[in-house]
């Protein structure tokens, strides 16, 4: 019939498009499998299968057993967790007020504040480290100013655990602010006004309306920050103490200086294990958002 004939091409069009769509995503998916998924699997296999001196391989948890019984490895893991936790808290404390200000301020100053908040994104970590040393390091600008005012020197955070914390917080401010700001964009002015209308003051508004509405964004921002901080290298390497050290420099030293690739890979797998927990938080949050 004419109607059926006329209808056929309309129905067939999406069918024809489907393989093109799949082909378009196939390339990046294959690249992810090749460059990310396979190295992860390969690394895990390498840490679990030990070569025997007489040839052949055997299953062994020896490297993991060593890591979790070695005091130095554990203190490195512990300082990494501490740094990550402190940075995550500080990032929230610093970035949430900035994002709230940017979302709700009508002032022209807000545009400049946003520019300043995003600025660290354009500063490479190594430049930031250099600036940090010149300002907060021994005989840096702060020391010179204190000296000029005849005041005692401060205890520099350089080469202490606080050095990487300051650097990493600075480095992660832009992304955290942007994610929180995007979350706050979903809190409508009318929802805020409705809350004020029923009697909510500033704190009640923040606690009962704004924070629950942006909890997903907070989770995503913290997941991103934690993923970056946990495996950070440059800032902990340049600004942090020699020992204990964060997992990034620890892995590099184990691999390059101690020539223990299998131990370094084990450290990487353990680091990955911690990161994947936050990665799953992120994936869950994205999936939750996409659920109709």
């Amino acid at each position: 019939m004419t109607i059926a004939d006329a209808g056929q091409p309309v129905l067939a069009a999406p069918e024809r498009r489907r393989p093109i769509g799949l082909l378009l995503v196939a390339v990046p998916v294959l690249l992810v499998i090749w460059l990310i998924i396979w190295p992860i699997i390969s690394a895990i296999i390498q840490t679990l299968w030990m070569r025997l001196p007489e040839g052949g391989e055997t299953f062994s948890l020896e490297t993991y057993r060593f890591f979790f019984s070695d005091g130095y490895s554990l203190s490195n893991l512990s300082i990494t967790l501490w740094t990550t936790g402190v940075c995550a808290i500080l990032l929230l404390v610093v970035c949430l007020p900035i994002a709230l200000y940017l979302r709700f301020s009508d002032s022209k100053v807000a545009a400049y504040v946003q520019g300043l908040a995003i600025f660290p994104m354009f500063v490479p970590s190594i430049i930031l480290s250099f600036a940090f040393i010149r300002v907060l390091g021994p005989n840096g600008t702060v020391d010179l100013l204190l000296n000029a005012m005849s005041l005692p020197k401060i205890r520099s955070p350089y080469l202490t655990p606080w050095g990487p914390v300051i650097g990493l917080v600075w480095d992660n401010i832009p992304l955290t602010v942007l994610i929180l700001l995007s979350g706050l964009g979903n809190v409508s002015n009318q929802a805020i006004e409705a809350a004020r209308d029923v009697g909510a003051g500033r704190f009640a508004l923040l606690w009962h309306i704004i924070l629950p509405r942006i909890s997903n964004s907070i989770l995503v921002a913290i997941s991103f920050a934690v993923l970056g901080i946990f495996s950070a290298f440059t800032l902990p390497y340049v600004l942090g103490p020699a020992a204990p050290e964060m997992m990034g420099p620890f892995m590099q030293r184990t691999f390059r200086e101690l020539y223990e690739p299998r131990t370094a890979i084990t450290q990487a797998v353990i680091t990955f294990g911690f990161c994947i927990v936050f990665g799953l938080f992120y994936v869950r949050s994205v999936a939750k958002n996409r659920t109709p």
Binding site: Q190, A191, E193, A194, R196, D197, V198, A200, G201, R213
Partner: peptide
């Protein structure tokens, strides 16, 4: 507004979507 004896119904409803109906009313 939080101290006025007025109640406003907005054009876009402005309901708090993270709360159920009871919580919206009880807030």
């Amino acid at each position: 507004p939080e101290k006025r004896p007025t109640g406003m119904v907005f054009q876009s409803h402005a309901l708090w979507t993270h709360m159920n109906v009871f919580k919206n009313l009880a807030f």
